[in-house]
Amino acid sequence: MATFVFLYFAAVIVMAASLVVVLRNPIYSALSLLVMFFHVAGLYVTLHAEFLAAIQIIVYAGAILVLYLFVVMLLNVKREERFNQQGPVALFLGVVLLTEAALLAVSRGFTVATPDPGREGAAVGNTESIGEVLYSTYLFPFEIASLILLVAMIGAVILSKKGIMESK
């Protein structure tokens, strides 16, 4: 049963992800990305990582993708003006990622990830366990991430204020 569910999610994720690249209309691409996010969240649920699943939908589907759609609709790019020259870069990145995936598959063997059996009936939910790990073992990467976000935020503020400052 678990294998069947995994295969369904994996198949839809791969299909939706390729549709994002293949489809001509950017709005349809964004929507296939939405479908993909949902199935990734489903994969998290089968692994008993409900917190990650909810965050996945809130952050990616609820915030980031809506902004994408917003921009796509505002720009309403003409077919000829769409940016289609990323072939060599895509090829390079694709080869790197495929090699990585192949190496991982060879070293680990083709097994379906199963939820930690001890976790299933545990009294502590996975929200608590994520919090504990995040603020002890991974505190340093967490702080680094917050610093990067702060820099990005300041950058965004400066970029949007640029025009106002120059005109004065």
């Binding site: 965050i55 939908i57 809130i58 609820g62 915030a63």
Partner: peptide, 17 residues
């Protein structure tokens, strides 16, 4: 479910689509 609040927020954000 143990993430009830997040569940509601997640689906509320889908309504915007």
């Amino acid at each position: 479910i143990n993430i009830g609040v997040l569940y509601i927020l997640a689906f509320a954000s889908i309504g915007a689509y």
